[in-house]
Nucleic acid binder design. Structure first.
Lengths: 333, 333
DNA sequence: CAGGAATAGGAAAACGATTTCCTAACGAAA
DNA sequence: TTTCGTTAGGAAATCGTTTTCCTATTCCTG
């Protein structure tokens, strides 16, 4: 690998000059600039990014912190971030945390140490530790899928979970459902999770329907908890005609439970999902669900982040559009 | 952030000495070692990895090159690699290539430039460009899911695709199926893809069954192609009683096709998948499939790689165990 | 035409580590 | 007692860049 010195020697100039034509950091006469350019070309020279990082205290690395890469929801986000980042010359350092605070912090330290240019952060709930890290290290960050008021003043890209859940519920109510269950995400530490139940409850209230706590099951976004929740809710003497699940994976679990109880969907039971991940399409019946543009959230997160990194663009809060995609799992009573 | 100089000053020694206690690279008297250790502790000093990388020409980064992070098969691999790497103090640089040679090479260049310690590489087929890159750059590499004879002498971790497909086919034959279709992966450039058809064909031959080319459909591992392939095969006048798909995603697509044609699975048609990704469990009927321990492949890849990076361990070819996991999509005639 | 501003380009310091090279001190052997 | 080998630790070079500081030239302007 050739270095800047080789280029300088070949072009008959000093390394400073080479650096200047490389970064356009100071005017260089066009004849010597040409000589340098030719030398660069001839040697196939590429500036060493490690050395660059050392002096600039800023690398071309973007950290993506997520709970679980093996979950289609998060992997879609990562794909979005990667695509946008690649376009702008950044690479992705993948930080898989299992949703564990300690691991999150550990990875943040690694990112700081590597002079990461910024980080896209997705966590169930933003903690003080997170916020103070970003404040102190001055590392640009954008929170993905996090309500604006919990980001500690940092940028965010998300959808309006409250409204989405509200509209999902309204969708069911419009189809004459009056008895509606809800399988939620963890309520203690998931911020968008509580927003979704609240949107659900509000829609009930606004339509004069009583909220029945025995039809609310607190899951953890995994298949298993959707299944268990479904069993719990559907085995009661009086059961709902529709169940809204806070994500697709739980909805799919619920589908299994319904099948096990011989409750055909959508004839006997309507099921509404949330997210529109791959599985919504492959399951039978296909899932009617609320699409969250998760890949786009990734892209916009990266875009916003890079804006802050390079342009000193203002911090901002983006809310992307969601939509109800109708497939086969809901019907009017 | 404190530097090695700060530590040296506080401990009243030279930076060389600090470096020595840090790396155990030369003996240091125990009293001065203690002073250094105390200083390190007091300052909360952590050596700067970028500076380290610059002089050592080796970072703590492992590149993971895959076609598509948003595919559960690849994301499971990445998870395996990440877990093992994290344990050993390495971080993951994610390289999503879309299966495109140009992007693969581009990412390899980035990895070289960043002094990546090694790379886990998963591609449809190893090309000359790949091999020569690894030879020239001397970057340690392990190929995941690649047959030994195509790795150009580098390490690999995989399963025996030929035998797995052979056994899968035998499984069907043992259940009295004599008319068996096959939906394959791309045959032109996927090495494990052709191995699987070949295992299939061989099992047919060994059991005195004729291979019928009209029941072979060349897909591309995606849902859509499984669906199309299913339609193509099942709409013929004479149709097979079982179809073996080269991966789960296509098997799920095929399930849709069968449903559309009112062919109940497994009563009228047995479907056998391959991989055992998440979707095998969530689909109805649940998929009988050949489990490829993909997360373990990731782990072992990382393990092997780190062995080569650190210990100069010999190159090796690992074949992990697969198994047929019986669920609901196959039955005896 | 003299003097000061502007300009181009080089030398050297800096980033934060590792490692080579050197020296002082010590101990053992002759 | 002299000498030589060993040892611990410091000074300085190095990795490959960027950037500051400085100097020599050119160009105006009065």
């Amino acid at each position: 690998m050739s270095t800047i010195k080789d280029v300088a020697r070949l072009a008959g100039v000093s390394v400073s000059t080479v650096s200047r034509v490389l970064n356009n950091s100071k005017p260089v006469n066009s004849d010597v600039r040409d000589r340098v350019l030719i030398a660069i070309d001839e040697l196939g020279y590429r500036p060493n990014s490690v050395a660059r990082t050392l002096v600039n205290k800023k690398s071309q690395l973007i950290g993506v912190v997520i709970p679980d890469i093996d979950n289609p929801f998060f992997s879609a986000l990562v794909r979005g971030v990667e695509e946008e980042a690649k376009k702008k010359g950044y690479s992705i350092l993948l930080c898989n945390t299992g949703g564990d605070l300690e691991q999150e912090i550990q990875y943040l330290d690694i990112l700081k140490e590597k002079y990461a240019a910024g980080v896209v952060f997705l966590t169930a709930r933003v903690q003080d530790e997170h916020v103070s890290f970003f404040r102190e290290s001055k590392t640009p960050v954008v929170f993905a899928c996090q309500p604006e008021n919990l980001t500690g003043g940092f940028s965010s890209v998300a959808i309006d979970d409250f409204r989405a859940a509200y509209e999902g519920t309204s969708y069911l109510i419009k189809r004459e459902h009056k008895n509606i269950g809800f399988v939620s995400g963890p309520l203690s530490d998931s911020s968008s999770g509580v927003l979704r139940v609240e949107g659900f409850k509000q829609a009930l209230i606004d339509n004069g329907i009583d909220f029945r706590s025995e039809w609310l099951y607190e899951g953890n976004y995994r298949y298993r908890s959707g299944y268990t929740g479904g069993l719990k809710i559907l085995q009661q003497l009086e059961r709902p005609t529709a169940i809204f699940c806070a994500n697709d994976e739980m909805a799919v679990g619920l589908l299994s439970a319904a099948r096990e109880l011989d409750l055909s969907v959508p004839e006997k039971l309507s099921v509404l999902g949330f997210d529109d991940t791959v599985m919504a399409e492959i399951v039978n019946p296909k899932l009617t669900t609320i699409r969250q543009p998760i890949c786009a959230i990734g892209k916009y997160s990266a875009h916003t982040l890079i804006g802050e990194i390079e342009g000193g663009v203002e911090k901002q809060h983006l809310l992307l559009e969601y939509e109800i995609v109708e497939r086969g799992s809901c019907k009017s009573i």
